[in-house]
Amino acid sequence: MSKPPYVIGIAGSSGSGKTFFLNCFLDHFAPHEVTLISQDDYYIPANTKTQEENKLYNFDLPTAIDRNAFHHDIRLLFEGQVVYKEAYTFNNPAIKPSMLEIRPAPILIVEGLFIFYYEEINKLLNHRIFLHAEDEIALRRRLRRDLVERGYSADDVRYKWINHVLPAYRQYLLPFRDQCDRIIINNTDDPAPIVAITNEISVELREKVLSARK
């Protein structure tokens, strides 16, 4: 690419609605206009971690991510190169990981819990979006997801929430909230507010980024 991408950093607590927000956002653009790179695809394998006494791994730490590889691949996208990466399977040996093909585009979305905490990544961001949901609402969403989609027990989910998720959010993400360009409060399961916000942002980006590159 002749110009570096316009980089949007999107982060929020677990259960804040990031996935729905991202899907709505991406639906406004063609694949050649926007690309997404997610921190979640750079988890270090669980078998390299030390288990806690209850045999659970803590994935909610900056050291749980292959930070160097994440940054390296973002830089490749800046250089106009295609990134090939195995999708993360949440340590499920029954799932064969798919191969991601992340192509450079004028708009680059960088998503993840630690993207503001990682200084080398934070400084690449042009626009920062923070999604927030109240703790009780976020936990309810997390329970619904992990019990149904990932087969965890309710006790495991609650243990991780109290001992891993909330401490990580408060230490590594919440301090950056006031530095973000847009804070989105998402305490409802009504999709209309998120759809409206992504509509607004997409119009701004078409005028600010895409039109300028034609």
Rank of each mutant, 00 (worst) to 15 (best):
S16L: 02
G17I: 01
G17Y: 00
G17K: 01
K18I: 09
K18F: 02
T19H: 05
F20Q: 06
L22M: 11
F25H: 06
L26K: 14
L26Y: 03
D27G: 11
D27R: 13
F29G: 08
H32W: 10
V34L: 09
V34I: 15
L36W: 05
Q39P: 00
Q39R: 01
D41G: 05
Y42A: 12
Y43A: 10
I44C: 06
P45Q: 09
A46S: 12
T48G: 02
K49W: 15
E52L: 11
E53C: 04
K55D: 12
Y57M: 03
Y57P: 00
F59R: 04
L61F: 07
P62R: 09
T63K: 12
I65N: 04
N68I: 09
F70E: 07
F70Y: 14
H71T: 12
H71Y: 15
D73C: 07
D73E: 12
D73I: 08
I74K: 04
R75L: 15
L77V: 12
L77M: 14
E79V: 00
E79H: 09
G80V: 08
Q81D: 14
Q81R: 15
V83Q: 06
V83A: 04
V83I: 08
Y84N: 13
A87T: 01
Y88L: 02
F90S: 07
N91D: 15
N91P: 04
N91R: 09
A94V: 01
I95L: 10
K96G: 00
S98T: 11
